[in-house]
């Protein structure tokens, strides 16, 4: 089993994701430079947070044209697992691997704080070590995390149970007051129809140690590792 962390110019959570995979998940992991196009050595790739290409045009809008993204599309089509975190989610949406878009937060500010999300579907490669309804405390850190999509897409996401995380309070109640950025239907993370591509705004790699205030994010990486281990048997 091997993980890869893609590095775009301007990625800045690449080292954090790498650290979690090697230290807390205990699996081999490489950095993948954005000009590399051969992903055949990997079982799962992480598109980390940051400001790819400065995000000056629109978050993720330039990264989707990077050479590695064509390979990521093929990789996903072959069934490889892709986890996009924060800027990674924005890039996946821009690249069309996930539906919808992430726009400026409702209050227009960058927001960095610990929030709560509820696990909406535990039957995915990223959440199988969790239970539906579990509340996770994970930090967010973004200015453009306000998820939008049209009514038909929302209905489809709901029908196909592709909303994986929703913003909630510590008891699991999903309300407008628990929505940090104005996301439609309190969406914090969604997956594709095949369930091998997940995008989420919260940073699970920042919540893998009690020292940092939470280790709730670890189960997401563990789920993925368990999925890969099962696939390799």
């Amino acid at each position: 089993m091997k993980f890869g962390v893609i590095v775009f110019p301007g990625s800045n959570c690449d080292h954090d994701a790498y650290h979690v995979i090697s230290k807390h998940v205990g699996q081999p992991v490489d950095f993948i430079w954005h000009r590399d196009t051969n992903l055949s050595a990997y079982d799962a790739v992480i598109i980390p947070g940051g400001f790819s290409y400065g995000d000056y045009l629109r978050a993720g809008a330039l990264a989707r044209f990077s050479p590695v993204m064509a390979s990521v599309k093929e990789f996903a089509a072959r069934g490889g697992f892709v986890l996009g975190i924060c800027n990674g989610f924005q890039i996946l949406a821009e690249a069309g691997l996930l539906p919808g878009a992430l726009i400026r937060n409702r209050d227009l500010h960058f927001i960095c704080e610990h929030i709560h999300v509820r696990v909406e579907n535990d039957d995915t490669p990223f959440t199988n070590e969790l239970k539906r309804g579990t509340v996770l405390r994970i930090p967010v850190a973004h200015a453009e995390g306000n998820y939008v999509c049209d009514d038909a897409t929302l209905a489809e996401l709901q029908r196909e149970e592709r909303i994986i995380f929703r913003y909630c309070d510590e008891t699991g109640a999903v309300t407008d007051a628990t929505n940090p950025n104005g996301s439609r239907d309190n969406i914090a993370g969604i997956c594709n129809r095949e369930r091998n591509v997940l995008g989420m705004m919260p940073h699970p790699e920042r919540a893998c140690e009690d020292l940092l205030g939470s280790s709730d994010g670890r189960d997401i990486f563990r789920s993925l590792a368990a999925t890969l281990a099962a696939a390799h048997v």
Partner: peptide, 26 residues
Amino acid sequence: YRQYDHMVRTNTAVLPGADAAVIRIK
């Protein structure tokens, strides 16, 4: 400080708002 990313690099053991911040050395 909510507008500042104070957690990137995953070392911030004491967050803003305390007498001093603490950064662990991995």
